[in-house]
Amino acid sequence: MIGLDMGRLAAVARKEIREYRRTPFIVGAMLVLPFVFLINPAIVIFVLSAAVKPAAVAKEVGSTFLVLLIVPAVIPATIAAYSVVGERDQGTLEPLLTTPVRRGEILIGKALAPVIPSVGLAYLLFALVVILAHFFAQNPAVPATLSEGSHILAQALFTPLLAVWSIGVGTAISARASDVRVAQQLGTLASVPPLAVTALVSFQIVPLGVWTAVGFGLGLLVIDIVMWRVVVAMFDRERLITGSHAAKPVAVSPSGLPAGTVRRIQSLGGVDDGRGHT
């Protein structure tokens, strides 16, 4: 990419991944959430009887499809929401910003770290559901519907685009937030709007076909591009640094001197200036 140094970008991404690996909350989220999101597909696969009609099956598979898209939408948002406010919290943001790294390199490096495992995990879950459906589904319409080209295409397109959205929004919230927990809660909420759009397809309010998938994919891509431009604009060094420091109250004693200085003067019984003043 023009203007970006791949070495710096890789350094940021490597650091993020190293930190994630040693953060129990992130490792826990990555391990536990996929199991939670497998509950709905498991019900569809193992409970839906052969007697259920194809229209009803399509509806159930649609809900499965939506549940699987929550993985790339929610997990990266939760992680990204920590990315900037977390740095500020532990005092690492300022040293980072004093280096020659460009904001694009910081943002992309930080985005790569959660996007790769999240998208990989989402694809893995989808593949797992399709395989399980082929072997264990009681209703033959379940694997057939899941394996439709339009479904696979939609999953392939929507997964990274949703992840990019959620990371961007999470990062933007993180850049403005002053508290890690608030940032993570808002980040999770911010992943809901694009999911609502994909729900139109999942629940067949808009019938899913190849062109519908491509159209929605393009729509998400445009939203992602616009949102990332906003994120880059928000990632301003001065704003990031002074956001927490500019309004910091100054502790000055009534005499105008720092409190420690006054105590010292008092302990010395006055200060001689050499001209007879104390």
């Binding site: 490597r14 650091k15 190293r18 930190e19 040693r22 005092g91 690492t92 943001l93 790294v101």
Partner: peptide
């Protein structure tokens, strides 16, 4: 800065590797 701002979950070497990378 006044607070050295180290990544506490990383080792000393890993902290320095990051900044070596950022300075190219």
């Amino acid at each position: 800065p006044e607070n050295p701002g180290l990544y506490l979950r990383l080792t000393v070497q890993e902290n320095l590797e990051l900044f070596a990378g950022l300075y190219g």
